[in-house]
Design a binder for these strands. Sequence first.
DNA 1: CATGAATGAGATTTCATTCAT
DNA 2: CATGAATGAAATCTCATTCAT
Lengths: 194, 194, 194, 194
Amino acid sequence: MTKDKILAAAIHQYSLFNYYGATMQKIAKEVGIKPASIYFFYKNKEELFIAAFQKLLQSHFEQMKGILDAAKDAGILEIFNSLLAGTVAYHKSHMQETNAYISLVASPPAEMKQFLHEHMKTFDTWMLDSLAELAKRELPHLTETEAKMLTKQFVLLMDGIFWEINLYDDETLQEQIKQANEMMRKLLEGIQHE
Amino acid sequence: MTKDKILAAAIHQYSLFNYYGATMQKIAKEVGIKPASIYFFYKNKEELFIAAFQKLLQSHFEQMKGILDAAKDAGILEIFNSLLAGTVAYHKSHMQETNAYISLVASPPAEMKQFLHEHMKTFDTWMLDSLAELAKRELPHLTETEAKMLTKQFVLLMDGIFWEINLYDDETLQEQIKQANEMMRKLLEGIQHE
Amino acid sequence: MTKDKILAAAIHQYSLFNYYGATMQKIAKEVGIKPASIYFFYKNKEELFIAAFQKLLQSHFEQMKGILDAAKDAGILEIFNSLLAGTVAYHKSHMQETNAYISLVASPPAEMKQFLHEHMKTFDTWMLDSLAELAKRELPHLTETEAKMLTKQFVLLMDGIFWEINLYDDETLQEQIKQANEMMRKLLEGIQHE
Amino acid sequence: MTKDKILAAAIHQYSLFNYYGATMQKIAKEVGIKPASIYFFYKNKEELFIAAFQKLLQSHFEQMKGILDAAKDAGILEIFNSLLAGTVAYHKSHMQETNAYISLVASPPAEMKQFLHEHMKTFDTWMLDSLAELAKRELPHLTETEAKMLTKQFVLLMDGIFWEINLYDDETLQEQIKQANEMMRKLLEGIQHE
DNA sequence: CATGAATGAGATTTCATTCAT
DNA sequence: CATGAATGAAATCTCATTCAT
């Protein structure tokens, strides 16, 4: 459908040139239509990008949910492992969306800031809650405080890996994932020996 | 000096609107001059932004060097601690530059990608080398491999904290720094007990 | 009928925005259809407006005829009186058409100028002839010249009132109609005393 | 000066095509510059036309004041006479402005309606007050009410003449002015014989 | 140093219109 | 009858840049 192709092109152009550099012309050309035609589907550039960003964030959210869902029946260390690997694998196989996503979070157009902030809060809450629940299930002897600490530490590692998607090539990134897994292993060991 | 004010305004506008949204008009207005006047100092927009980005990256680099330098005579854990705290403190007190820096790394204008990539490699190498050296000095019993691992893990935590500057408010960020310090403490403990 | 609703909407939009501002979109929206549908009824914008203006002028003409017809059996002063009152009453109760009519006469689209000029001449001739005839019937002692003068003077007053529809609120306008009637009364008095 | 030439061209184009048909391109072409250059002098089309209309109305007002001033030392009938003749002479020798003025009053762009209404009120008040004062000076035996009536009647004739500028050719218009003068003469005669 | 004036190129958007369904 | 989808042309406006002063 043309409407969806426009969204995809908008996200792609955004990933390349940011909001002001992603022109209606370039988007139209990528879709294979004329700029005027975009206005049949979207009222203006702002509404197009609101739709595009919504789709982007939502599909990122759903992907994360899927990864967590697929991993949730294993042991806690494996879950962490799968989450890191799954996140990176997804992002590496959807570089356009990932670049757009990173760009959006790192330097959102002024009009999106509010909307984006709310999404990030929702996402963060979901991630922390889900992880804490899994941690309690797998490590029932943990206090509430300990479980929270553990999840926060894991999220910190996830964020580190996420930022490094920007910086490192595939090989180095895989090495960093190993380091992250290693760290989680040691932290869990420490807890279980206490 | 007007020339420096232009650079600062360019960085500020870039942090707000990215490359294509940072117009010569807005930059001029922020400085209090007319757009035509910018061309007395810089040949064109591209050269202005090359200068601006160079300054931005260089001053970030120097700042990091300064932080490391100030911390380097303490114990290894304190060094890690100071680096994290110093980095965040610097960025929080220079939000404009930080936003511009993050934006630049996360979604650089096509023309800058090459230049940026080289800078990041230099910076990364320096950071890893410096940290490895300090680790060896403070923990002389570590093998080369162990030292490298430790520094990589620390860098991963630093990157996590860095990305979270984007996401969290001050309070939550301070909490995350604590978590990072706590993690480093446990990792070192583990190594020293082996 | 849709076709008539389109005409009415075209006239309304014309009264608000003039020819170039009365877009097919706005007309369609007012009717509750899509712009493409208009082309089933009218070949293009120009033909739509030719039809609209013809209807507008013709209905104005017929209305004036009706008013004259209804008044023509009274005394001459009453006839003048009824014409003024009737004209204003009609226009005040059809403000959209009146605004469009005034707008059309005051600043016709270039393509309409010729057509409009002819209509105005026809209308003017009819009005002068009709009035002159009535004047002769009611005031048989008048010379041809005197009758013509009287009708021209009356038309001048009518035109004044007409322009003032633009300018004044209802109350002031009613006051001006009284003045016009008063003037006609005095003029007739003057003639009859000679 | 370019700025003034732009204003004049805007008024001219407006007189030909009304607000939406008076494009920046046509205006620029008439001045002999490029459309972009207009924006150096006026922020946008709306502000350009606000300036243009202000100039138009103000210069019309001043012209009327000048005509009244030049006529004010004669007898009352001559004053009326001069006003009518002066108004028409001015408008006939400034057809562009007059067409624009009529168009503006008859079908103002929505954004101008408020501003225009206030101007018209000011103008109307000035005209009525000035005429009433002259009437009292020249015809001191008139009551306040009679003076007011006389001026209103004169204004009605003026408005009739004004609207007829639209409708008639020069010759017919001169004839109508004669009729207007004749009417004023008779009205005054009536008053003085009472 | 700095600006006023100007512009070519291009961005966003609107408009009248077409045509297949 | 009516519309969804599309478009060429043009309208408004912005942008980077130039150049004389």
